[in-house]
């Protein structure tokens, strides 16, 4: 097959794109396998060093924080629980609220939908004091519930689910009704399987959203056992700036690389569903 000039150009552009995506990660990874001294003296690294197991071992098991108790591994677990809780509840709640908005034809469905939609203009950062007040009054500070609950409502996901449900023909509901389906079984037997690719996509977005929360956990948690990854990035090696010790750049890189693993795993796992949804036309 002859290669056309246009194809070469296209490939060059694609390769540049890939490099832009991959290089920072590679530099982080490569740098994380060197000694702190060599990074400090020679800058970031493109080649692998010999300190992989030492650095990563250090990061995972070193006890940090003020009380010298919390480890990076604990923070990964915290973040994972928080992100999983947020993503699962966000998807479940928005799917159900969209179901109510589309299929229960009450008069206020449209105004209520827009009301939900408007909350996009009021992100957590804006309402952080009232949110904190409520959570603290409920005694939920320093708990997983407190980390997750204020973040579980999602206007975006409700919007996407609503738009999707609106494309499902009415006859399907009518036919299901005649087949003896009730409101709940229609949701579980029809809407959930029909929107599974949508659910997978939303879950990925919401997981990453939950995983990368910084401000809320920072305000919410005083106990170190509830610290999350993104907080840890800032906090866990702070003392190294103050002392005479070298900046622990290599460990920081190792920490960054490790912190990417949970979201990557979620994407990799759900991608199967994603692609399945793309190649099967089920509607």
């Amino acid at each position: 097959m002859k290669i056309k000039p246009l194809q070469i150009v296209a490939h060059i552009i694609l390769i540049i794109g890939v490099l832009l995506m991959v290089l920072p990660i590679w530099i982080s990874f490569a740098s994380s396998t060197h000694e702190n001294v060599s990074i400090l003296t020679e800058g970031m690294r493109f080649t692998l060093g010999d300190q992989f197991s030492r650095n990563y071992n250090e990061v995972l098991n070193e006890k940090g924080g003020w009380s010298e108790e919390v480890t990076a591994a604990k923070m990964f677990i915290n973040s994972f629980i928080m992100a999983l809780g947020i993503a699962t509840l966000k998807v479940a709640i928005s799917a159900m609220s969209a179901y109510a908005l589309v299929y229960y034809r009450f008069k206020l469905a449209v105004p209520i939908f827009w009301l939900i939609f408007i909350t996009l203009l009021v992100p957590l950062e804006v309402r952080i004091f009232p949110s904190y007040k409520i959570v603290s009054d409920l005694g939920l500070t320093n708990s997983y519930t407190g980390l997750i609950l204020p973040l579980v409502a999602s206007a975006t996901a409700t919007f996407f689910f609503r738009q999707f449900y609106k494309t499902i023909p009415d006859e399907l509901l009518e036919s299901a009704k005649l087949d003896g389906a009730n409101a709940w079984s229609f949701f579980i037997d029809f809407l959930v399987p029909l929107s599974k690719t949508m659910i997978a996509a939303m879950f990925i977005f919401m997981f990453v959203y939950g995983y990368s929360q910084y401000l809320w956990p920072l305000i919410m948690t005083t106990a170190e056992e509830y610290w999350t990854v993104v907080m840890g990035m800032k906090i866990i090696y702070t003392e190294s700036y103050e002392g005479v010790a070298l900046p622990r750049t290599a460990e920081r890189f190792a920490y960054i690389i490790l912190s990417m693993i949970p979201p990557v795993l979620v994407v990799v796992f759900l991608q199967k569903w994603f692609i399945k949804g793309l190649i099967q036309t089920e509607k």
């Binding site: 399907l172 009518e174 299901a176 009704k177 005649l178 389906a181 009730n182």
Partner: peptide
């Protein structure tokens, strides 16, 4: 409708 014991064939079939 679910308790009327009627069955319906729709114009576009409405298969699941």
């Amino acid at each position: 409708p679910s308790e009327r014991d009627v069955a319906m064939v729709f114009q576009n079939y409405a298969l699941y």
